[in-house]
Amino acid sequence: MRLWNVISGVAWRTLKNALTNPQIVIPTMAFPLFFFTAFAGGLSQIRHVPGFGFPLGYTAFQFVFVLLQSAAFSGVFTGFGLARDFEGGFAKRLLLAAPHRSGIVIGYALAALIRWMVVAVFLTVLALAVGMQVGGGAVDLVGLYVLALLVNFCGFFWAGGIAMRFRTIQAAPLMQMPVFLILFFAPVYVPLELLEGWIEAVATVNPVTYLLETGRGFLAGDPPHALGAFLLAIGLGVAFWTWAFLGLRKAEAAGA
């Protein structure tokens, strides 16, 4: 019960700030919606490129990428908040008040998840409103959103681990840049088969490629490597969870 108190308290406070302050909520919402309208609208003619082959069209093709991207960045932005709390001293209050400090990290992770879910609802409604086709059934769609949820956890635990090691918002580029790169070195605009040269080589070994292809497969009703993608996402989640909790130990040892 005390652990849940810490988790719910931290999540409530993080969400209250994230969802009621325009300076935080507007970029959180606008960023993925802008990406979606810019990519899906501006690049829609890519569907006519020979070999494109995604059956649901370009809007659905881009939707999955933006959904996963928003999941990852909701996690990273929540990590920014954690870094700000260390820098400003508020983390000391949390460390002093929480009997179980692991609840602090889990509380932020829960906030990151809810924050992303709000964005995901808006994004999904927008995509359906502009005529996105959906080929998969209910199970496929659950698969897609659960996959995105795991990406959200990975994004937060990665950024949270950095935040607790550096304990300053100046570490924000270090949280954001690797996520940005790994997402954009995946087949974002066209399928993997249409990529060539070094980007194809990088995309082939990039784990996000498998998550993205599986996500698109879920939306189309034919996920290519569902089990592998989930194992990969869970494995990354466990690795970044460990990374984040080791970061918490470092912050504790440093006296926050």
Binding site: V6, V10, N17, F90
Partner: peptide
């Protein structure tokens, strides 16, 4: 160590929940 974006009452609510 206070959060400038929260009210005094919010702080008390958070602290009470954590404790």
């Amino acid at each position: 160590a206070l959060d400038p974006l929260l009210t005094g009452r919010d702080h008390l609510r958070l602290q009470a929940t954590l404790q």
